[in-house]
């Protein structure tokens, strides 16, 4: 029983190795970059535009709007990071319809990497916005007694991010694999469709949670801690 595409190793030299996770990630990166390049190749700045351009503009505008709704006042500063998180997770899930494809997000290493990125990005943006002192003070809100709890919360939510995405993606692939052995014809297709939905939802949750964490870190000190994030996590 294989739980992660990390286990498929194509090449290894001591510590260095080339496994399916990295390979598929490169594939996705290539597809995304080439796709982006192709789509934006003939971008028009006038009133007339192609359907593809319209679609891409809608997606990017929606992401930007979503980031703004979360509470980040300058969404364009975070669009690169949060938007790429969403696109990567979403495309990784969508590609599960391709036979033989293993989603890199089904590997705990990948999800941990993404969660680590969020873990680093939160203080990065927080310090950038408020300064080091103010950011560090936010760990002692409302009192210094809360410092250990805040630190625990910081670490645990990063862990939760990684495990949540991994669990969902891995379980989807796992269920399909199990179902293929039991009822190999119709039911896996239905489950794949459900998997697509799950993947999209996970992509949304992952990026929105990252946005909420960053928003909480960059928010002015007087404001209350975000109840939104609590709700979504629950």
């Amino acid at each position: 029983m294989r739980l992660s595409p990390d286990e498929i190793i194509f090449w290894q030299h001591g510590f260095l190795k080339l496994n399916a996770t990295i390979l598929f990630t490169w594939g996705l990166m290539f597809v995304l970059t080439v796709g982006a390049k192709l789509i934006t190749r003939n971008f028009s700045t006038g009133l007339k535009r192609t359907r593809w351009q319209n679609l891409v503009e809608i997606i990017v505008s929606a992401i930007e709007k979503q980031i703004e709704d979360v509470g980040l006042s300058h969404p364009r500063n975070y669009l690169g990071f949060l938007g790429t998180l969403f696109l990567f997770v979403a495309v990784a899930s969508l590609c599960t319809v391709i036979p033989g494809y293993e989603p890199p997000t089904g590997s705990l290493s990948t999800t941990a990497a993404l969660a680590l990125c969020v873990f680093v990005a939160v203080p990065f943006f927080g310090i950038k916005e408020q300064g080091v002192g103010n950011y560090l003070k936010s760990y002692m809100e409302p009192t210094f007694i809360m410092l250990p709890f805040n630190l625990i919360s910081e670490i645990s939510r990063t862990l939760a991010l990684a495990v949540r995405l991994f669990g969902n993606m891995m379980s989807g692939a796992m269920i399909i694999a199990i179902l293929l052995t039991i009822t190999p014809f119709i039911f896996p297709i239905v489950m794949t469709m459900l998997g697509l939905l799950t993947g999209m939802v996970q992509a949304y949750i992952f990026s929105i949670l990252a946005a909420v964490y960053i928003a909480a870190a960059t928010r002015v000190r007087k404001s209350k801690p975000e109840p939104e994030a609590q709700n979504i996590e629950a």
Binding site: L3, L16, K17, N19, T21, I22, S107, S109, A113
Partner: peptide
């Protein structure tokens, strides 16, 4: 489940 090299690479 976690391969730290893969984490870094990813």
């Amino acid at each position: 489940l976690i391969d730290w090299f893969t984490v870094g690479a990813q």
